[in-house]
């Protein structure tokens, strides 16, 4: 159960529109409640390949291959997935490949699962250390524009960028029985 704590906004639709506007074709993801609507939009789009992974690590290699072959891509994950990717980030860094991660945050205000806190608290710092620039989205209304700007820069400058979407934008997983 996820309860939105901000006014209803179709921020996943705004992000999806940004992906379309930037001709993103390969959308790799590890299923996540926060990204569920965006994943549905991408799966419904015949111009996109929306591909579930067994681990976020696969997404770094996949998007490297995609871009080498001429496709743009994006990787959707939860903050817990950031840790899984650390060594694979070297591929994007050493080869100077464009990379865009969309990370839904756990372990922030209102989190009810303490096991999410270590990666939630450290995702931005770990990304920065690995050479991936973290950008925060703290309000639903900013999501689309932030992703559009990140895509523009990632593909213009071969930058590696992670957009971190605050837990308050996504909603809190309740665990109520």
């Amino acid at each position: 159960m996820t309860t939105p704590v901000t006014p209803a906004s179709d921020w996943p639709r705004d992000i999806y529109r940004a992906l379309c506007a930037h001709q993103v074709r390969q959308v790799a993801y590890v299923p996540d409640a926060g990204h569920s609507r965006l994943i549905e939009y991408c799966r419904d789009d015949p111009a996109m390949i929306a591909l579930p992974l067994t681990t976020e690590e696969e997404g770094i290699g996949l998007l490297a291959g995609a871009w080498l072959g001429g496709d743009r891509g994006v990787l959707l994950m939860q903050s817990s997935g950031v840790g899984n990717c650390i060594n694979q980030f070297s591929l994007a860094r050493v080869c100077r490949l464009p990379l865009l991660l969309l990370v839904t945050m756990r372990g922030e205000d209102g989190e009810r699962n303490p096991w999410q806190e270590p990666m939630g608290r450290n995702s931005a710092g770990l990304l920065e250390t690995a050479g991936i620039e973290p950008l925060r989205v703290d309000a639903a209304a900013a999501a689309g524009a932030t992703v559009a700007a990140a895509l523009e820069r990632a593909y213009r400058e071969s930058s590696a960028i992670a957009v971190l979407i605050a837990q308050r934008v996504i909603g809190i997983k309740s665990f109520d029985q």
Partner: peptide, 16 residues
């Protein structure tokens, strides 16, 4: 490097 990435990288290329 990026040990474990050969198949994912080939997959992204093959799809592209």
């Amino acid at each position: 490097g990026a040990m474990g990435s050969a198949v994912p990288l080939g997959l992204g290329l093959a799809l592209a």
